[in-house]
């Protein structure tokens, strides 16, 4: 992702000519982590995706084959992939709207209240994920308050678990902080005088956001989209507990391949496909953001 590639040279902390060596030095810890804990393990996975699987014992037998990839062309997998991508896009869109508004709201509160509000966003996540998920099941289930209240009001309500609605709602719930924080971080760094200038000029709400806040927080928005869209593919508990487990996501499929199917090579191949697809969509998102930011820069100039 290189949303900042697009924006940084134009704006942001402009790079001074001197001190580039310092720039590389600052990157060293991250490079160490990425090489040792990301690239090396991924190389292992890439290798395994071409290995023969050992169907009896699990694990891999070495060797080289394209079979693991060839099998993925089965329409069965394409269907799961399509469904997952659709759900991921929907989740990212819902999270973006809610996350953007919440981030904007928090960043316009008095400065000393903001950290408290930020903490309020994150505190629910100190309870365990499964405990929260089961709380939703209780709330939306047939013995829970949703059904009782709706029936008391005269509606013919029944349990919302399992349902697509429950899945989307709990995805929003799970990903909301991740959607809010990057946008908030960008908004917070926007010069407050711009804000005042905008309101002094009497620009409308949408105009102000379209011209000022959205372009200036584009990097945060990009991060937010990425952090919600991409990991949705790997989700595997929510579709089962709230969605009934009849429509597995790619995450469920890969877990099944690695565990029940004892087919690490095919799980690895599937992961590589997901990786390539995701990097491609990240490139698309980044490209769109770059266009957005170039346009806004041109307008500003």
């Amino acid at each position: 992702m290189s949303a900042s590639t697009a924006t940084a040279p134009a704006r942001g902390l402009r790079a001074p000519a001197r001190g580039t060596l310092l720039g590389y030095l600052l990157l060293l810890p991250a490079v160490a982590v990425i090489v040792l804990l990301v690239i090396v393990p991924m190389a292992v996975i890439a290798r395994q995706s071409f290995a023969l699987s050992d169907p009896l014992l699990g694990g891999t037998m070495g060797g080289f084959t394209w079979d693991n990839y060839a099998k993925l062309f089965d329409p069965v997998y394409a269907k799961t992939m399509g469904y997952s991508l659709g759900l991921a896009a929907l989740n990212a869109a819902v999270c973006l709207v809610v996350g953007y508004l919440l981030a904007f709201y928090i960043s316009t509160r008095p400065a000393n209240r903001q950290p408290v509000l930020l903490m309020l966003v994150i505190i629910p996540f100190l309870t365990d994920f499964l405990v929260r998920t089961f709380a939703w099941i209780t709330l939306l289930g047939s013995g829970g308050p949703y059904v009782r209240i709706a029936r008391a009001l005269g509606f013919d309500a029944s349990s919302l678990v399992p349902s697509q609605f429950a899945v989307i709602m709990s995805l929003l719930y799970a990903f909301l902080p991740v959607a809010v924080f990057p946008i908030y971080a960008s908004m917070r760094a926007i010069d407050p005088s711009l804000r005042e200038a905008a309101s002094d000029l009497g620009a409308g709400w949408w105009q102000t956001h379209r011209r000022i806040f959205i372009p200036l927080s584009a990097t945060g928005i990009g991060s937010s989209i990425m952090l919600t869209f991409v990991p949705t593919l790997g989700v595997f508990v929510i579709p089962v507990l709230l969605g009934g487990g009849k429509d597995p996501l790619v995450g469920n499929l890969i877990v099944t391949l690695f565990t029940e199917f004892r087919n690490e090579p095919m799980g690895a191949a599937m992961s590589m496909v997901v990786l390539v697809l995701m990097l491609a969509s990240v490139a698309v998102i980044t490209g769109l953001l770059r266009l957005l930011s170039i346009r806004s820069n041109r307008r500003a100039a």
Binding site: I45, L227, G234, G251, A268, V274
Partner: peptide, 8 residues
């Protein structure tokens, strides 16, 4: 790490 499912 965000893209690749955690189990991998």
């Amino acid at each position: 790490p965000l893209i690749v499912p955690e189990i991998v």
